[in-house]
Simulated assay, not measured.
Amino acid sequence: MWKHFAANALTLLIVGLIVLAGLAAMAQRSFVAEGPLEQAICLRIDRGANLRAVTRSLEEQGAVSSGMLFRVGAQYDGRDSQLRFGSYLLPAEASMTQILDIITQGGASTCGTEVLLRVGVTRAEYLVRELDPATNRFSEVLELPLETEEFPEEYQALSVLPDTRFRIAIAEGATSFQVMNALENAEFLSGEIAEIPAEGTLSPDSYEVRRGADREELIGDMQARQLAILTSAWETRAEGLPLATPEEALILASIVEKETGVAEERRLVASVFINRLNTPMRLQTDPTVIYGITRGRTVLGRGLRRSELNAETPYNTYRIDGLPPTPIANPGRASIEAVLNPEESDYLFFVADGTGGHAFAETLAEHNANVALWRRIEAERNQ
C-alpha cells in the first residue's frame, strides 16, 4: 500500500512538473509574442512610478494581454526596478519584452511634448509640438517668436514637464551670428557665449539638449560636427580641384549653400564655381556682396544697389579675384560634399529659371538669353 501511494505521488509530481513546464513555456511564448496594440501609443511614466502603476497604465491602454504576466516577467528578468521616467513610443503589436526594453533602457523620451527652437536664415522661433503616436508625426501646439519675453502659461506648463524634450534645429545657410543670437535668447539654455563662432564652423543640424544645457558646450558640439564632416569630405575629394585647403572648400560650400536651395542642383552649381576658379574667372555672386554689407547679422531685405556691386570690399566677388576671405554662412554636409565632388560640366553661368531652380549655360550668349527669359517671368509675376 505504501508503495502504491508513493507511486501515485510520484506520478502526480511528474504530471505537475510537466504542467508547470508547459505553463512556463506558454508564458514565455506570450511574453515574446506580438501584443494586442492595434496602433502605436505614447506611454508616460512619472518620476517614482512603480511597476504596478506602469502595468496598470499598460492594461488600461490595451498594450498587454496580461498585467500579471508582464509583472512576473519583469521581476523574473530582474528589471522590475529599472523603470525610467519619461514618455515612450510603443509601436503597434509590441510584445511584452519589447515594451520592457523600451521603458527600462533609459535615454531621451521618444514621444510626448517637444520644445523646438528653429533657427532659420530669416528668423528664429519656438515651436511646441506633440507627437501623435498613431502617425508618428508632430502636431504644432504653440508657435512663438524668439524675441518672446513673457511666455504664455501654456508654454510655461508644458516646458517644465519632466519628460519634455528640447531640441535646436539649425537651418543650412544660417550665419554664426544668427545661431549665437538664437542660443543667447533660448530661455532653456544657460551660460554665456564668449564670442561669435567663426563663420562656417557650425554644423547645421538638429541638437537635442536638456533644460539648462550650457551654451558654450553646445557651440563646441556644433563645431566638432562640422569639423568631422569637412575632414571626411576633404579626404575623399575629387582630384584637380582649385582648392588648396579645407578652409577654402568651406568658403566655397557656403557660397553654394546660399545660391541654391535645390538639393539636386548643388553639385552642378558647385561645378560652375569650380570652372570659374579654374578659368580663372571672377565668381560674381550676389550672396558674397550681401555678406560684405550685413556680415551675417541682418537680412538685407532688398536688392543690391549698383554702388554696392561696384564697391571695393573683400567680399565683393564682382571686384575681387578668387574666394572671399571667410565663409558667408554655415554650409550643410551636402554643400560641402558637392564642392569637393562637383558635377563634371562646362557651365560657367546660371540664373533662376522661374521654377525655384536655375538655368545653366556654357557661354555668355546662352546666359544672356536665360537672363532675358527670367526677366520676362519676373515681369509677368509682378503684373
Rank of each mutant, 00 (worst) to 15 (best):
R52Y: 12
L51E: 06
L304Y: 07
V119W: 02
E343I: 10
A21K: 00
R305P: 03
L144A: 09
H4Q: 09
L340I: 13
R129G: 02
A244G: 14
P342M: 14
L116S: 06
G173N: 01
F138G: 07
S81T: 14
I290Q: 04
E362Y: 04
P204R: 00
R79D: 12
R129K: 14
R237H: 13
R381Y: 04
T113H: 09
L10F: 03
I193H: 00
A182M: 02
T279V: 14
L268D: 11
T236V: 15
A352W: 11
A157C: 06
L304N: 07
G16L: 00
A27M: 10
R305G: 12
F350Y: 14
R333H: 02
W2N: 07
L23H: 02
N50L: 06
S87D: 12
I103G: 12
L43A: 08
Q226V: 01
E59M: 15
E195C: 03
L51T: 03
F85T: 07
L277Q: 11
L89H: 14
F188T: 00
L340C: 12
I99R: 12
G62K: 04
N275W: 15
K258C: 01
L300M: 05
E153L: 11
I196C: 04
A33D: 09
S176C: 01
G292N: 02
E344L: 13
M281P: 08
A244D: 14
E195G: 01
L309A: 04
A63G: 12
A253T: 08
A379R: 08
V121W: 01
E362W: 01
S271T: 14
M1F: 06
G301P: 08
H4D: 07
R225Y: 07
V269G: 10
S190F: 01
S307M: 07
A6R: 08
R305I: 04
P36W: 07
R167M: 10
G354W: 01
L131G: 05
S254E: 07
V371Y: 03
L43V: 09
P204M: 02
E248G: 09
A213H: 08
L51P: 04
E362F: 02
V269C: 13
L17S: 04
I18R: 00
G354F: 03
G112A: 08
F350H: 03
R237K: 15
F350D: 08
A365V: 12
E140D: 10
S335D: 05
L364C: 05
Q39V: 07
I196M: 08
R267T: 10
T148L: 06
E130F: 10
C42A: 15
V54H: 12
A311D: 11
